[in-house]
Structure formats: C-alpha cells, structure tokens
Simulated assay, not measured.
Amino acid sequence: MTTPLLRQSWTMSAVLINMFGQGLVLSYPSSLLPALNQPDSPIKVDLHTSSWLGSIVGVAGIPGFLISSLLMDLYGRKTTHGLVILPAVVGWLMIYYSTDITVLMIGRFLCGISSAATVSLGAIVMGEYTSPKYRGVFLYLKNASVCMGAMFMHIISRFLHWRTISLVAMSPLLIALGIIYTWPESPAWLLSKQKYNRSEKAFFWLRGNCEESRREITETIKAQKERMAKPKLQLTYSEEISDFFKKFTKKDFVKPAIIMVLATVVLEMSGRHIFPAYLLYIMAEITGESSQSFYYTLGSDVIITASALFASAFVNVADDDDEEANSKMINE
C-alpha cells in the first residue's frame, strides 16, 4: 500500500518534470542562436531577429498567465495543467519542422505560453495537493528543476543539432502529461464547486485516511458549506465593478503584491531569465575565449543548480525547527 508521501511525490513529479522542460525552453536560445548564425545555416537571422527569438518567450508569458488563470477556475487544476502543456508540444514540433524564421518564432511563442502558464499553475497545484510538511521542499524543488533543465540544455547543445534538441525537449512534456492523467482533481477546486464527496475522496487519496486528515477535511467542508449558505448581496452592475476594484486597495492584496513585485525585481536583476538564454555568449565575452565558454557555462550551471538544491534541503530543516518550536510552546 502506497503512503501519502509517495502519492504526493508521484503527483508532484509531473510538475517537476514539466518544470525541467520549461528550463529547456528558457535555455534553448543558447543552442539555437549560434547554429542559426553559422554561414551554412538554412535559416538566416540578424541581431534583431536573434533578440526576438530569445525574448519572445517572455512576451508570450502575458497570455500564458491569463489563460491558466481562467482555465484553472473553469476546468480544474488537473485538466488545465494538461491543456497548457499542449502548446509547448506543438511549439517544439513547429521548431523541428521549421523552414523559415516565422515558424520558428511561432514555435517559441507557443513554448512561452506553456512556460508561463505552468509556472503559476504548478505553484498552485503544489499548494493544494501536498501537505504543509512537504510543501516548502516541493516548491523549492520546482526551482531546482528549472535550473537542471537549463544545465541539461547547455550540455546537449554541444553534441546535438538544434532540431534534434527540440524533440528531446518535448519528451519531458509528454512524460508529464502521462503522469497528470493519473491525478485526482484538486480537493480544493472540487470543494469550491460544492462536489464534497469527490473532494473528500481526493483528499484522502493524497493525504491518507487518518484521524488528522478526517478532521481537517470535515472542518474545511463545514466552513465551505457555511460560506455558501450566506445570502449573497444583490448588486447592480456598477456596484459589482466598484466592488471588484476595491479589492485591489485592501491590505490583504496590497502587501502580498508589493512583496511579489520586489521579489520579482530581485529575481530578474539577478539574471533569472537572461543567464539561461545567453550564458554562453556572456561567458565568451567575459573570458574572451569562446572555445572554453562551454566549461565556464557548465560551472555556472552547477553552482546555480546546487544552490537551488541546497535551498530545498534548508527549507525542510527550517520547517522542522519551526514545528518543534511550536510544539514546545503548545506543551508549555
């Protein structure tokens, strides 16, 4: 009989494998652009076009975030996670069969949609499918998986053609799709749709049918029923719009928003998306030795990945210390 941790790990493996695939998406320009700049390349690019091939993934992130936000509320976490991976599968196929820059650009755009959509959705899935004890570790492993994907891309770029790499990069997405098929739907989403029996069944499958789990899901269902039983205020159309925008002025929105903006600024200023795509170029410019830039890049990838893995282990130790301290306070 499988344990709750094993079931949660199996479920999260789809997210982590998919994140590995998104690391390949981010780092693909390090393989693609040098090949297209070769004199014998069948597809010619200039500096402007090369810049767009690298950055269009970020542009595609805007519709990607919006699409996942809408779909996850309408169709649930499981179905949405499978759907938003499909654009990247199509994108990699378009890149493999591309004969001009337009098809390449569309393929990269589709990969960018999936990348952004699954980044936000993956974090929500981890929050709803895992127990608080393991949640922090899985969230940090999500970042480590992206770093591993970037490192793997830089390694295979030295040995494989860019078309072959597009097929290799599609493989993790197909594996993730297969695992997602075995998921139950999110208990939290089922609960929001008032599907209480299915929510309870999915919750027990993920967290185990122990006394603590039964108490938690019973209290959650009770709170949801009480919330749904409250009469809804009948508002006019203008009042609904006004009420919607008022939410953006509340402290429980403003404070997390400021924290997220600052964290994102620090992340981007640290080269979160610049390094995976252009690290080979950066190292060649810094060292002045293009022939050795691969080894410098590999060294940087090892440091970045090791740091992400260290953070995953460290947050688990910190969570254990917090639980121990809380237990002592309760006992006292």
Score class of each variant (00 low, 15 high):
P276Y: 00
Q22N: 14
T236S: 12
I62H: 03
R77G: 01
T102D: 14
T2I: 15
R215F: 13
L33T: 01
W92F: 10
M329Q: 13
L6F: 12
T287S: 14
K201W: 02
E128S: 03
P29T: 05
S242N: 03
F152N: 03
A169E: 04
V90W: 01
I113K: 00
I165Q: 12
V317M: 12
L262N: 10
F138M: 08
L71E: 04
G23D: 04
V317I: 15
R227D: 11
T236V: 06
F204G: 02
A123S: 14
E285H: 13
E289Y: 13
L71F: 04
I180V: 05
T49H: 07
S69V: 00
F275Q: 00
S69G: 13
K195V: 14
F244A: 10
H48T: 12
F244E: 10
I95M: 07
I241Q: 14
V315W: 00
L279P: 00
S68V: 04
D46A: 04
T102E: 02
G91S: 00
F203H: 00
W183C: 01
L191V: 02
G64N: 02
L235C: 05
P172R: 01
S114T: 08
L309W: 06
S300T: 15
R158A: 14
M153A: 12
D322V: 15
A318E: 11
I221A: 05
I179C: 01
I221R: 08
L70Q: 09
R227I: 12
L86C: 05
G288I: 04
L71P: 03
S238A: 11
Q22F: 14
L70I: 13
G127M: 05
R215W: 12
F314N: 09
L33A: 08
N197G: 12
K201V: 06
A176V: 04
Q8L: 13
L53A: 00
D320L: 15
K222S: 15
I124Q: 07
S98K: 05
I101A: 07
R108M: 01
M329N: 13
M269H: 09
V57P: 00
H161L: 12
T99R: 10
A88K: 03
R214Q: 05
K230D: 06
E239P: 01
I155S: 07
I43D: 09
K78C: 01
H273N: 15
P256E: 02
I106R: 07
I101G: 06
P231W: 04
I165E: 08
F138H: 07
A188P: 09
V315Y: 01
K44E: 11
N209Y: 06
S68C: 10
I62L: 09
E212F: 09
V317E: 10
R135F: 02
H81G: 11
R158I: 13
S115Q: 07
S290P: 08
V266K: 07
I95K: 02
A60D: 02
T218I: 10
G271W: 00
A263R: 10
G58P: 07
I274L: 14
